[in-house]
Nucleic acid binder design. Structure first.
Length: 241
DNA sequence: CAGCTGATTTCCT
DNA sequence: GGAAATCAGCTGG
């Protein structure tokens, strides 16, 4: 940061519904500063979640220890842990007491590519081998995949539950969101959200049209039960006498 | 390229 | 006990 004033988004930006806030965040710079360095992304894909009114929202069934930050003041980060291994980050909207938020789904890394790459590769580093010990035959991390997807974005930025509640509207915060250096007219698309089984029809996902860092949309498909009901059951479903 | 599956833990019914 | 706002790597066409 060459001493330039850090122009974070004002908190009023988040004092609206998530559906109104979501497209505003596209093109903005989301960054995390740590002792390791700074990683910044331009947001390219986001999703709105409407709290109590949205069955797909973590806040739909009310306040819990996990989602408490969503019910707090706007302009703070709600970071959750899911699938036993991934973090995802939202920015909280609407005044304290309500619970809507915008999930940050993807970004293009513009600062700290090296650090972001190191974080993303942290689990398949040792001698360039995968978890099964096989060589990674030159399959590197494509630049566009560094922060493509909500969990990858968190990994690239080094975001964990420790940042749950961080104030992204505070210039002194290690995690913050600011306006782009140049405001350009953006081509924004809108469509259904990804990875949810309910309310999958509402078009509350927003992205920069044609941007290569945006997730590929696939309709939600429930996973088949993979474990047999009993240890005796055969793969075809029959049970020996 | 599409499709499938293991990983791994928290949360809620 | 099962699903979860996911991802990576493998398989087969």
């Amino acid at each position: 940061m060459e001493g330039a004033a850090l122009v974070v988004l004002p908190r009023e930006t988040f004092a609206r519904s998530a559906v109104e806030v979501a497209p505003v965040l596209l093109g903005c710079v989301f960054e995390h500063e740590t002792p390791e360095g700074l990683v910044a992304v331009v947001l390219t894909e986001v999703e709105a979640y409407h709290g109590k009114a949205d069955p797909a929202s973590h806040a739909y069934r009310g306040r819990t220890a996990r989602n408490a930050v969503m019910f707090g003041p706007p302009g703070h980060a709600y970071v959750y842990f899911t699938y036993g291994m991934h973090f995802c980050v939202n920015l909280v909207c609407l005044p304290e007491g309500t619970a809507s938020a915008v999930l940050l789904r993807a970004g293009r890394v513009i600062t700290g590519v090296e650090l972001a790459t190191a974080r993303r590769a942290a689990r398949r580093d040792l001698a360039g081998r995968d978890l099964a010990g096989r060589e990674l035959a030159g399959r590197g991390l494509a630049g566009r995949d560094l922060a493509r997807g909500p969990a990858r974005l968190c990994k690239a930025l080094g975001i964990t539950r420790a940042l749950d509640g961080a104030d992204v509207c505070d210039p002194a915060s290690p995690l913050r969101i600011r306006w782009p250096d140049r405001r350009e007219k953006l081509d924004i698309s809108q469509g259904p959200r990804i990875g949810i089984s309910v309310a999958a029809d509402v078009p509350w996902r927003f992205w920069l049209t044609g941007d290569p860092t945006v997730s590929v949309y696939r309709p939600y498909a429930p996973r088949l039960r993979r474990k047999p009901v009993s240890a005796q059951q055969r793969s075809d479903g029959t049970i020996p006498l």
